[in-house]
C-alpha cells in the first residue's frame, strides 16, 4: 500500500520538501520557508513534523520561527500589512501609524482580522528609509505616511 495514501495534499508536499533536504546541512530555514509556502503559516503541528524530519528539538524550530518576522505562527490575511519599525521609520513616527492600524483593524500585531482579509505585522527596515515611515500591503509600498492616511489606504482593499 502506498505509504503516503492517508496523507492530505499538504502533507504530501511537505514530505517532498523533507526528501529534498534530507542530506542538506543547515536545512531548517529553507525547509521552514517551503513549509510556510505550503500552509501559509507554521502551526505547531507543522513545526513538529519539521523537528521530527530534521531530528532536532521542537524548541529549536520554535526558536527560529519566532526569531524571523517572515515566519508566522498564525494564518495570514489575504492582504498582509507590514509596518516598518526600523530606526528611520520609528523616529519618523511609525509607532503612531501602527497604533492607527491596530485601531482601524481591531487586531494586534501578529493577528488577522476575523474575515481573514487583513493581517498585521511589524517588520525591521524594508530598505526605503528615504520615504519613512513606510508600510507595505502585499507588494504595494506606501511611504511618507501620516496617521490620517491610514483609513483611506485600507479602503482600497
Amino acid at each position: 500500500m502506498c505509504q503516503n495514501c492517508n496523507l492530505d495534499e499538504n502533507q504530501k508536499k511537505l514530505q517532498e520538501v523533507f526528501d529534498k533536504y534530507k542530506d542538506t546541512q543547515g536545512a531548517l530555514i529553507p525547509v521552514l520557508h517551503e513549509a510556510q509556502e505550503i500552509y501559509g503559516y507554521l502551526p505547531l503541528s507543522v513545526q513538529e513534523a519539521v523537528a521530527d524530519a530534521l531530528e532536532i528539538p521542537l524548541s529549536e524550530v520554535y526558536g527560529v520561527v519566532t526569531f524571523y518576522t517572515h515566519f508566522s505562527l498564525y494564518p495570514k490575511g489575504k492582504y498582509k500589512i507590514q509596518i516598518c519599525l526600523g530606526t528611520a521609520c520609528y523616529v519618523k513616527g511609525a509607532n503612531n501609524i501602527l497604533e492607527e492600524l491596530k485601531k482601524q483593524l481591531g487586531i494586534d500585531v501578529g493577528q488577522s482580522t476575523k474575515d481573514g482579509k487583513f493581517s498585521l505585522d511589524a517588520c525591521r527596515c524594508v530598505g526605503a528609509c528615504g520615504i519613512a515611515p513606510v508600510m507595505m500591503i502585499n507588494d504595494d509600498v506606501y511611504g511618507s505616511l501620516a496617521v490620517s492616511d491610514v483609513a483611506d489606504i485600507l479602503k482600497k482593499y
Binding site: P57, S59, T66, F67
Partner: peptide, 10 residues
C-alpha cells in the same frame, strides 16, 4: 540533547 528550552523571540 534534551532540547526542552531554547532562545525564543528576538
Amino acid at each position: 540533547t534534551v532540547g526542552a528550552i531554547n532562545v525564543m523571540e528576538r
